[in-house]
Design a protein around this nucleic acid. Structure first.
Lengths: 123, 123
DNA sequence: CTGTATCCTCGTCGATACTG
DNA sequence: CAGTATCGACGAGGATACAG
């Protein structure tokens, strides 16, 4: 799955990062945390995602029991995705990290700018 | 910097995940949280990492002000890396996620096994 | 010891076309 | 509407060689 396993070192955290470290999983989780959503509705909200990646991302999340997939018996058939309890729990944990990120983002941006200023693109 | 930016959507959290979502940053932070460490010492601890990736990872962490680089005036010259306060703070946030991971890993493994059992490798 | 530069492989993802 | 299959392009990263 994805990139080569780093080590046995800290399996648990790596498992999670392998899942949410990718570009889209977090966005999907964030969106689903607002409530259930159908496939194409998600596509519209997360504009930049390709059909393939949304499909892959949802399947992986479902596989880990973070998202549940409910086929609605309508015509044409619709599929509704929603966070499971575990998914909601992960959303909470992510929020914690997101809070850290928001708190420290200004400082990080400053650090980056300072660093880049000293190492001028090295052409 | 890795992959294409997803969206403006949730910049802060994406910034962090772009940094720690990769295979090595978390391991480096974990290791440095135990105390300062030199380049090759890190290499030995994180066996699977290539020289190049350790270098790249450390530089990125330094750029974000998460790790500080201290050149020791010895012969031959040595370089000691350590977590900054911000880095230590991030380590705390990661630990929170790691705790979630450890708590839920058994359930996730179970879910995966159940899922995979239903979708037999499709060869 | 602590890196950087180059090359090359291999996985990842977007585009496209097609199915239920 | 909700996907899957195939293909091709791109880029991350390992190996290696070299530099300070």
């Amino acid at each position: 799955m994805g990139r080569r396993r780093a080590l046995e070192y800290d399996c648990a955290i790596r498992d999670v990062l392998d899942r949410i470290g990718d570009a889209w999983s977090v966005l999907v989780i964030m969106e689903l945390s607002k409530g259930p959503c159908r496939f194409n509705a998600l596509r519209r909200v997360i504009e930049a995602i390709s059909q393939r990646m949304l499909s892959v991302t949802l399947r992986n999340l479902e596989r880990d029991g973070l998202v549940s997939r409910q086929v609605l018996d309508t015509s044409p058939p619709q599929v509704e995705y929603s966070l499971t309890q575990r998914g909601a729990s992960l959303h909470g944990a992510i929020s914690h990290l997101a809070h850290w990120a928001e708190t420290h983002q200004p400082g990080i941006r400053t650090s980056r700018a300072a660093y880049d200023a000293k190492e001028p693109i090295a052409s």
